[in-house]
Design a protein around this nucleic acid. Structure first.
Lengths: 190, 190
DNA sequence: AGGATCGGAGAACGTTCGTTCTCCGAGGTG
DNA sequence: CACCTCGGAGAACGAACGTTCTCCGATCCT
């Protein structure tokens, strides 16, 4: 069975995503990705010349996918305050996925943050992107200090992400949403 | 140089703690722990019959140490509301440590949560202990719903823990403290 | 003092991993 | 048909790992 470059790459990334996310990057060997993707080892290495390259591609794709899912939820609402709360509905949906295992960037950072500056950078950029999205939403809602409000909201979000992973329940999303409404009430005097 | 069991154990745990925490559990070999502890491999294995045992001991000690440091900060305050806010001062102190790398339990869970139920359990228990401490503090402060308040506070704490690790600054502790005061103002109508 | 016990240093073993290499068949081109 | 290129299957390689073993000197008991 011969595959064109684009589909081979997609199959490898699909396999890498599933395995890396479920078991962590270090616990997954290139041979497991070969087996799961159905792509030969030779081809795998000409698509991604090293495991590090593949890890980077895995994180890049996660980042793009995550951002688009977030935007989808947020854009379903029009009221500025509802758009902020939609973030927590997005989290709730995410946490309910059967294979939810926390944030890939937090997990990868924990595994490789000291040893791989590249992974540390990607994690930092991913979180910075989230922070900027929250800042925009806060501005649109007329917050007096949008940066500060964004900081408060991101703390609730990140807390929910890790708590949901460790407890194995989606509940933290609802708790974070409650806390967010309190913070919004105090920050948006309108 | 011959060491009694107690000091050998302590030296091994000291080395394991430093290395596991800095580089992650999987990235540290038993030989690195031998070298850093100055204890022979033979002795190391009679103190801790496997790497898994050592990882467990590492997490156990982290849990105990963490709890005692938290209690120390909390007990320095007497006013119930100040005792809650002291949690965030503790986090701030923790984040400013030169080698701060996030929560060992979150990191280990990300690395081994799927593959090691023991580690998943320890992480879950550690976080549950924190939650109970916050519930007690919330009760003492006269919260109408102490469980819920504890949930909100823990989200801020966990969020600060991971954000501080990834951003490399201690700032999130101050942001979490601000958000906590808002939540307290809304939850403790007194 | 002599024998037994213990621990230190580090070699050794079996496995796994990242990466490369070899061999071979399939398909396109003259 | 002859030739060349490409990719697949998987062996091979060198390093690292967790764990065990060997050898040997020190210490303790009687």
């Amino acid at each position: 069975m011969v595959l064109d470059t684009a589909t081979a790459q997609r199959q490898v990334l699909d396999a890498a995503d599933a395995l890396f996310y479920e078991r962590g990057v270090q616990a997954v060997g290139m041979d497991a990705i070969r087996a799961a993707s159905g792509v030969s080892l030779k081809r795998l290495y000409q698509l991604f010349p090293s495991k590090d390259t593949l890890i980077e591609a895995y994180l890049d794709r996660r980042d793009a996918l995550w951002k688009s899912m977030l935007a989808e939820h947020v854009d379903a609402a029009t009221d500025p305050r509802a758009r902020i709360l939609a973030v927590f509905d997005f989290l709730s949906d995410w946490f309910q996925q059967r294979d939810y295992r926390g944030c890939a960037f937090i997990n990868s950072f924990g595994e490789l943050g000291t040893v791989s500056p590249r992974v540390a950078d990607l994690a930092s950029q991913h979180k910075e992107g989230f922070r900027q999205a929250l800042t925009e939403l806060s501005k649109a809602a007329g917050a007096a200090d949008p940066d500060r409000l964004a900081d408060h909201l991101i703390l609730l979000s990140e807390g929910a992400i890790t708590r949901s992973a460790i407890s194995g329940t989606a509940d933290p999303a609802a708790r974070a949403r409650e806390a967010a409404t309190m913070i919004l009430d105090a920050s948006l005097k309108s």
